[in-house]
Simulated assay, not measured.
Amino acid sequence: MNWREWAKKTDRRHILALSGGKDSSAMAVYLRDKVPNLEYVFCDTGVELEETYDYLKKLESFLDMKIHTISAAEGFDFYLKMFSGVLPDANTRWCTRMLKLKPYEKFIGDDPVVSYVGIRADEPHRQGYISGKPGVTTVFPFAEDGLIKSDIYRILEDCGLGLPSYYQWRSRSGCYFCFFQQKREWVGLLENHKDLFELAQSYEKIDPDTGERFTWMQDESLEELCRPERVAAIKKEYEKRMRREAQKFASNQRLCDMWDGDAEGQELACLVCHI
C-alpha cells in the first residue's frame, strides 16, 4: 500500500513530527492539502536554537494549523544528572531517547497512527524513526514520489518560507550542543550564539584525578576549540574543503548543499531530531 492510500485511512491518526529542519518542514507543506486531519508535532528539548522556534512560527502561520509542542517531563539537566554527568554521544544518544522519543511515544499513545517521515529519494541509506508500537505505520512520501534535495528547496521557496536561517552556519536542526556538529558548526555557534557556546562549554568536565574527559567531541574540548588560532585553523580547513567540493559540483551550488555534502557524521545523525 502506498502512502496516498494510507493517507485516506480515517480510522487512525496521521502525524508528522517536525524538527524545524528543511525536510520535515517541506514535508508539512507538501502534505498540507493531501492528508486530511494531519497532526503537526514538535518535540521540544528545551535546548533548541531560537532560530528553530522562529522558523516553526513561520511554518505554523503558513499552514494555518497549530503545531503541537510536546516535551519531556524533565529537562536535559535532570537526565544528565540521572546518567551520572556523562554527556550523550553517538553511541548512547540518551538525549534523543529521553527528550524526543519518549515524549513522542507518549503523545501517540496506543492509537493506530500513520507516521510521515521526510526521507528523500536521494538518501536511501538513511532510516527515519520507526516506532516499535504495533499500531504505527511509517510512510515516506518524498522517497515514494521520487523527490530529491532540489525539490525540497523548490517547495520551501515556492511557498515563501525559504530555509531556516541557521543553515547559514549549521547543517542540521537539533539541540545547540548537538554532538553531531562539525567543528566548523561549533565555530558558527561561537560566532552566532556565544552565550550558548559558553553554556555548552560549561557542561564539559575533565576529571583531575583520572584525566578522563567528558566533552562533546572525543578529540577536542570546546575550551581548546575556541582559541583564536584554533578557530582560524578550522575556518581555513573548511574553506579548503569547500574549494574541493566546488570543483566537483556546479558553481551555483547552495551553501546548504555544501554543508550536507561535507557533514561529518551526517549519516549517523538521529533523524527524529535532524530531518
Rank of each mutant, 00 (worst) to 15 (best):
G132I: 12
A121L: 04
R93I: 05
C175E: 02
E39A: 10
G160I: 02
K106S: 14
Y238N: 12
C43G: 09
R184E: 11
I119N: 00
S150H: 11
M65P: 00
Q168G: 13
E50A: 07
Y129K: 03
V136S: 00
I15M: 07
E223R: 14
V41P: 03
I70R: 06
A26K: 02
L18E: 03
L99M: 15
S61R: 11
F62I: 08
G174C: 13
L63Q: 07
G21E: 00
T45L: 11
Y53R: 02
G211V: 14
R241L: 05
D122L: 11
Y40T: 03
I119K: 01
Y116H: 12
H274P: 02
R12L: 15
Y167K: 15
R4A: 15
M65D: 01
Y153M: 08
K205V: 07
R170C: 15
G265K: 13
L199E: 11
L147E: 13
A90I: 07
A200K: 14
W3C: 01
T215H: 14
E204P: 10
H125P: 00
R126V: 10
Y116S: 04
S131L: 00
Y203D: 03
Y238T: 09
I275C: 02
L225D: 05
G261Q: 02
Y55M: 05
T96N: 12
E60C: 11
E5P: 07
D11Q: 00
S202L: 12
F142S: 06
D151M: 05
K236G: 14
D158L: 10
E144K: 06
R154F: 03
C178N: 02
R13P: 00
T52C: 13
C159S: 15
D111E: 08
F180S: 07
I234E: 11
D23M: 10
V41I: 12
C175V: 07
A28H: 09
Q201F: 00
F62V: 08
H193P: 09
E245G: 03
D151I: 01
I148N: 08
V113N: 13
G160C: 08
I234D: 12
P164E: 04
A7Q: 13
K194F: 15
E39W: 00
V113H: 09
R170Q: 10
T138G: 06
E229L: 06
L222W: 10
M98V: 00
R97N: 02
L222Q: 13
C95G: 05
D257T: 01
M65A: 13
S24N: 12
E223K: 15
Q201D: 04
K9A: 04
M242F: 04
K102C: 13
E191T: 01
A72F: 11
F76W: 14
G265Q: 11
N2L: 11
P88R: 02
Q182M: 15
K235S: 09
K57E: 05
W6P: 01
H14Y: 06
G162I: 07
V47A: 08
G261Y: 03
L161H: 10
I119D: 00
C256G: 11
V86F: 04
L199H: 12
L99C: 14
G109A: 10
F42R: 00
E267P: 01
A232M: 09
G265Y: 09
R93C: 05
L225G: 11
K133E: 04
N37G: 09
I275Y: 03
V231C: 03
D64L: 07
D122W: 04
D257Q: 10
G118D: 15
W186L: 02
W94F: 12
Y55R: 04
F107T: 08
K194S: 15
L80V: 04
L199Y: 03
I15W: 05
E48N: 07
